[in-house]
């Protein structure tokens, strides 16, 4: 007599498709319950009238979507977009050289990678609070400046503070994928370029950079998308003056108790991100088609 375990394994063995389904089932179920269902709930909320005491009333309205196109909110949206792009660009400019050096660091590689990942050992909230101590008028930086005889600079609650916080928080997400793509770059390709007459800058432009593009793209997406939705950094480091779309959504759900409007704002941002990513993928496909 075969045990139940053996019977199940015996049934699965000749059925590769059933095995595949079994493997993806737990994850799929999770996403279904905790991702898809909440999104559907939000979608429904975003087209229902606002309840007097929070929540929603029965009915259908596009009022919340219309309301978003008020100059006040478009302003926040534009600022969020510009800041996210700026944050992504700064992360790329700072992160690429770091990834490059780590990928070539030989036996120091794992130690340097460890340093990149180290900030994740404490919560993002705590680290953002720590930045307040650095940046505030009587903070560490300004204390030094005063000791050097320079007038203190107001940094906290400025766009600079928000940008510093965003870049600090997302930099590892740029470094790691770029590192991964540079690390597997075949060094003999660089030697081939060099012996074919390419000086270091040309070699970088024609070989290293194109071959690390997948990492650059992954890094940019990993920074841009969460930056677009971030609210903690702008809240703590920007004060009330530097509102991002994430703060708006958070406010609608908490203080303002306007869930339908918060949901509508979320959907608009989501649509924008989706459009941006799809546009990018299309351009990349076309480039690839051109190359082959």
């Amino acid at each position: 007599m075969a045990s139940p375990r053996q019977r199940i394994l015996g049934w699965l063995h000749p059925r590769p498709q059933a095995r595949a389904w079994l493997l993806v089932a737990p994850g799929t179920l999770w996403l279904l319950v905790f991702f898809l269902v909440p999104i559907l709930i939000m979608l429904v909320y975003s087209v229902m009238p606002r309840g007097i005491y929070g929540g929603v009333d029965p009915g259908f309205t596009l009022e919340h979507y219309r309301r978003f196109f008020d100059p006040l909110y478009l302003d926040i949206l534009q600022r969020t977009f510009v800041w996210s792009v700026a944050c992504t660009v700064i992360c790329l400019v700072l992160g690429y050289p770091v990834a490059y050096v780590i990928a070539r660091a030989g036996r120091w590689k794992s130690f340097l990678l460890f340093l990149v990942v180290l900030p994740f050992w404490t919560s993002f909230l705590v680290r953002t609070f720590a930045m307040i101590f650095l940046l505030r008028d009587t903070g560490l930086i300004n204390n030094w400046l005063v000791k050097l005889g320079v007038d203190p600079i107001a940094m906290l609650y400025t766009p600079f503070a928000v940008m510093a916080g965003l870049v600090y928080g997302f930099l590892p997400f740029m470094v790691l994928p770029i590192y991964a793509s540079l690390e597997k770059l075949d060094l003999s390709l660089l030697e081939a370029a060099e012996v074919l007459g390419a000086r270091p800058t040309e070699r970088f432009r024609r070989v290293t950079l194109p071959l690390s593009m997948p990492g650059v793209v992954a890094g940019c997406l990993l920074v841009f998308i969460p930056a677009l939705g971030s609210f903690l950094t702008s809240d703590l480091l920007g004060g009330a003056k530097q509102m991002m779309i994430g703060n708006l959504v958070q406010n609608q759900f908490s203080a303002a108790r306007n869930w339908p409007f918060g949901s509508a704002a979320s959907f608009i941002v989501m649509a924008l991100v989706l459009a941006a990513v799809m546009l990018y993928l299309k351009v990349k496909d076309r480039e690839q088609a051109k190359a082959t």
Partner: peptide
């Protein structure tokens, strides 16, 4: 290498 007038064929081809 880029200042020398040599060409090279690599063991693993090293095609881009």
């Amino acid at each position: 290498p880029y200042e020398r007038k040599v060409a090279m064929v690599f063991q693993n081809y090293a095609l881009f």
